[in-house]
Amino acid sequence: MANKRVGLFVTCLVDLMRPRIGFATLKLLETAGCEVIVPDTQTCCGQPAWNSGDAPGAVALAKKTIAEFEGFDYVVTPSGSCGDHIRTEYPTLLAEEPDWCGRAMALASRTYELTDFLATVLKVDSVPGDHDGTITYHDSCSGLRSLGIKQQPRALLAMMKGVTLKEMNGCEECCGFGGTFSVKFGEVSAAIAERKCDNVLASGAQAVVGGDLGCLLNIEGKLRRMGDETTQVLHVAEVLAGRV
């Protein structure tokens, strides 16, 4: 695996809101022996456009992403949501264009969410992080329900001696973000987020951890508005990689 070339799809939110997740992902992959390349022309996977009904925009971004990443042995992203869009939706989006559809399917077969890649493909037996404390894990919708991301992050976190996992009630329930859902249905989104945050606080964990930054931003924002200033909200890559 050490000779495998991995294209890192950073995601829009990570690039713009919390770049350290990208650097943590890079550290994890390189520590595991991968050659990692970050195409500097990458932008969005097209999921927001697709979810908002802009099919032409989504198709254009899909083709752009395929062209940028199809030369790698694997594509890895620290997001179940973006990973799911590339793996599941690209072939559908391009179904009426045989050449592009074939390229989309080929890319989809080599695209992985970060923890799935580390646990399932690389089968790592250690991680470089040194986090110490109790955490509770939020399972993001797309990663859980479409990609089967459940035990992978927990198995990786279990490798860390200082980490104690305290499962919250409703860990598999939506946080209320849902991309454009939180904009279109703000009151419903806020109510769902409050229930999620109540469960986070009831767990007694020092940190809530997840695999999608959109969920984490939503959860952190609600926690702070509820008056909680101490619970850490961390991406799983940040915990697994430690300081970068």
Results as ranks from 00 to 15, higher is better:
residue 57 G to S: 03
residue 59 V to Y: 07
residue 60 A to K: 15
residue 61 L to M: 15
residue 64 K to R: 14
residue 67 A to K: 12
residue 68 E to S: 05
residue 70 E to L: 08
residue 74 Y to P: 06
residue 75 V to W: 01
residue 76 V to G: 02
residue 79 S to M: 00
residue 82 C to A: 14
residue 85 H to N: 12
residue 90 Y to E: 05
residue 92 T to R: 15
residue 95 A to M: 03
residue 100 W to R: 01
residue 102 G to T: 09
residue 103 R to G: 08
residue 109 S to I: 00
residue 110 R to F: 01
residue 111 T to S: 13
residue 111 T to C: 11
residue 113 E to G: 10
residue 115 T to S: 05
residue 116 D to Y: 02
residue 117 F to Y: 08
residue 122 L to T: 08
residue 123 K to S: 03
residue 129 G to P: 08
residue 129 G to T: 07
residue 130 D to E: 10
residue 135 I to W: 11
residue 138 H to T: 10
residue 139 D to P: 03
residue 141 C to L: 12
residue 143 G to W: 14
residue 146 S to W: 13
residue 148 G to D: 09
residue 152 Q to M: 06
residue 154 R to A: 00
residue 156 L to M: 00
residue 156 L to H: 04
residue 157 L to K: 02
residue 157 L to Q: 08
residue 158 A to T: 00
residue 158 A to I: 05
residue 160 M to I: 10
residue 162 G to E: 05
residue 163 V to R: 02
residue 163 V to P: 00
residue 170 G to E: 11
residue 174 C to I: 08
residue 175 C to W: 02
residue 176 G to Y: 00
residue 178 G to E: 01
residue 181 F to K: 07
residue 182 S to M: 00
residue 189 S to E: 08
residue 189 S to D: 08
residue 193 A to L: 07
residue 194 E to W: 00
residue 195 R to F: 01
residue 196 K to C: 02
residue 196 K to P: 02
residue 197 C to H: 06
residue 200 V to M: 09
